[in-house]
Simulated assay, not measured.
Amino acid sequence: MAKSCYVHIPFCGSICYYCGFCKSVSSNAVKEKWIDQIHKEIQSKPISSLDTLYFGGGTPNILSKEMFRALSLPLMEFLDSDYEWTVECNPEFITENQLQEFQQLGVNRLSIGVQTFQDSLLQKIGRHHSSKQAMDSINLSREFGFHNLSVDLMYGLPGQSLDDVIRDLETFFSLGIDHLSIYSLQIEENSIFGKKGICSCDDELEADMFEQIVKMCKKHGFEHYEISSFARNQQYSKHNLSYWTDQDFYGIGCGAAGRENGILYENTKDLVSYCDRGPMPSFISETIQERAFDSIMMALRTQFGLDVTAWQKRYGLDFFMQYKNVLKKYLGTYLCLEKNHLFPTEQGMEILNTILVDFLSEN
């Protein structure tokens, strides 16, 4: 039975130019219908206890105090004693009253979507907060007792230079936060950038940016524990680790994805349909080979890697026979095998997509 739950909040104050997620700028009447369906969906799940709860979006902290509480109450009873409850927050909407409400409910981790600390770049990607607002919201969160904080940054933005990335990182380090998620810009077809034909960053520049990010994070005592995630003091995202370690998780809400009993599903992304008829999940049919590959793909994103013994037991396959050619090609420089755990080196993380293509070709 799943011990993690993801709840998707599809509402935003405005739509960022890069965003391809399920999102909407909606009225309170729509949100109330959405809350009703969320409650019904929670009741339909066999939830008994949760180690992690994650509110993502969209913009979860755009909800009013009353709506956030209504969303939270049916799930709070399932939280285990040592739970992690993360809420994604846009600095634009963080207030003292909101942080006080989060604290009272028991939220204990915030993921703050800064994207960049440079105002000119924030405007280029359609963000409405300023760099100062972002830093103020982080400091305010600390004042209200939130010390398990993560910041989201992006690189490869239109017009962004390597020096811009360095400045963003220097600002981040100055804040003394122990978790960083940093993603390269991917142009989604249904995003505003995609519709305008904005091109991705030059591959060589993007690679230089990634190398600089890794170098600077390690210099400041961060573990590169997942391809896009860095942590100090073992402040890993417990929720995301459930994805990367092949665990089941509930996906609740319009646009949410989940995995129950090893079967992946995606809820409808149509908000009107969700409000009227519920999640209407589409189940993703996978063979054992496909599920086994998914497990490899997720595990190799992390420094912890793949437990080969557990993988073979779970999927009934001979890992070393099936992937002998891939292992012969990459072991040493790009992949390491220790005590039956396979994990990527830093060089391996840089070419992980290439490595995974070779794993896939052996399926």
Score class of each variant (00 low, 15 high):
Y334N: 09
Y243S: 03
Q235K: 12
S141A: 15
N261R: 07
D178Y: 03
L360E: 14
F343Y: 15
R127D: 12
S137C: 07
I112A: 02
S174D: 13
L335T: 07
M67A: 11
E88I: 02
D119G: 02
Y83A: 12
V107E: 03
I288R: 15
C275M: 10
A134I: 05
Q303R: 14
A70L: 11
I62P: 00
G262H: 01
S72E: 12
S228M: 04
L121G: 07
L153Y: 02
M297S: 13
Y18L: 08
G57H: 10
T302L: 04
D307A: 13
E226M: 00
K215D: 00
K3M: 08
K132D: 14
S48V: 13
R301D: 12
K33I: 07
P60A: 03
E84R: 03
R167G: 05
W34F: 15
A70P: 01
Q43F: 07
I284K: 15
F343C: 02
N267W: 05
Y183E: 05
Y83T: 10
S273N: 10
G221L: 05
N261I: 01
T268E: 01
Y155W: 08
A256C: 05
G126T: 05
G20M: 06
I296E: 03
H224G: 00
M67L: 13
I15P: 01
L140K: 10
D202Y: 03
T354M: 11
S150L: 00
F249K: 00
S111R: 02
S174M: 08
S44Y: 07
S174K: 10
N108C: 06
K324T: 12
A29W: 11
D82T: 13
Y18K: 07
I166R: 14
L185G: 04
C22R: 02
K132T: 13
V357F: 08
H8D: 08
N325I: 13
N108Y: 04
M154L: 06
S150P: 01
K45P: 03
K324F: 11
M349H: 13
T268N: 01
Y334M: 02
E189T: 14
N90M: 11
R127K: 14
T333R: 15
Y155T: 09
M298A: 10
I227R: 05
A292I: 06
S285Y: 13
E223Y: 10
I9Q: 01
I213T: 01
K339V: 00
P91F: 06
I284E: 15
L317W: 07
F78A: 04
Q103V: 02
D152N: 06
D294S: 13
Y54M: 09
Y243P: 09
I47K: 10
H128M: 12
K3V: 09
P10V: 05
L53F: 05
L162H: 10
F21S: 09
I351G: 01
D202M: 00
D208L: 14
